[in-house]
């Protein structure tokens, strides 16, 4: 299989004493939609799907984030995507659902550092502190829809659609410098 080549190359995009922003390597992404008794799907995925919006679950390298009452974003290694698609297709008859490969749709930024949360306040109207560590949300950053995963108090991932990436990355880069220039 041909490796993904991203128009934004993976690696550190901006770093300062305040925060660090890097573009993550491509990963597998699946948009899952289903409702009702999810046990068949959970069996296929090998993971208990979180039911609360913003909740997350992980099994091995598969991660799931509940985005809406019947919607999850799954992240997995690229190589695992076809297996997951196949496994879920196997239970489609038992539990009709929609599983769409969106690996090519998005890119993720890793945002970390002592003032990572504050960096997000440059463009996010919601209170970042209401996203607990280990949770995630779909929200708006600088006018664009993004998915935020909070992996630690000072470490986030931001999933953005490809065509918005350079715009959002530009603001994050400005912010990384701006925060570092601030005397606290």
């Amino acid at each position: 299989m041909t490796a993904h080549t991203s128009s934004l190359s993976s690696g550190v995009a901006a770093v300062s004493s305040a925060a660090r922003v890097s573009v993550e390597a491509p990963c597998g992404r699946l948009s899952l939609r289903a409702r009702g008794d999810l046990s068949a799907l959970e069996g296929a995925l090998g993971l208990a799907l979180p039911r609360k919006v913003g909740g997350r679950a992980a099994a091995g390298e598969l991660q799931a984030l509940c985005l809406g009452p019947d919607e999850w974003m799954l992240h997995a290694p690229l190589a695992a995507v076809s297996g997951l698609v196949e496994a879920c297709a196997g239970v489609y008859g038992a539990l009709p659902h929609s599983l769409v490969d969106v690996s090519g749709r998005e890119v993720s930024f890793q945002i970390s550092g002592p003032r990572a949360a504050e960096l997000l306040t440059l463009g996010c109207a919601r209170d970042i502190d209401t996203i607990a560590v280990g949770e995630g949300r779909r929200t708006l950053f600088d006018g664009s829809t993004v998915i935020l995963w909070r992996d630690a108090a000072d470490s986030f991932r931001m999933d953005v659609w490809n065509s918005f990436a350079s715009h959002l990355l530009h603001l994050l880069e400005v912010g990384v410098r701006e925060l570092a220039a601030e005397a606290l």
């Binding site: 948009s31 939609r33 009709p96 659902h97 769409v100 690996s103 090519g104 749709r105 490809n162």
Partner: peptide, 13 residues
């Protein structure tokens, strides 16, 4: 209706 919609505009070139 048992049907779901997913934007794939940016999944594809």
């Amino acid at each position: 209706l048992n049907v779901w919609l997913t934007s794939t505009t940016e999944q594809w070139s």
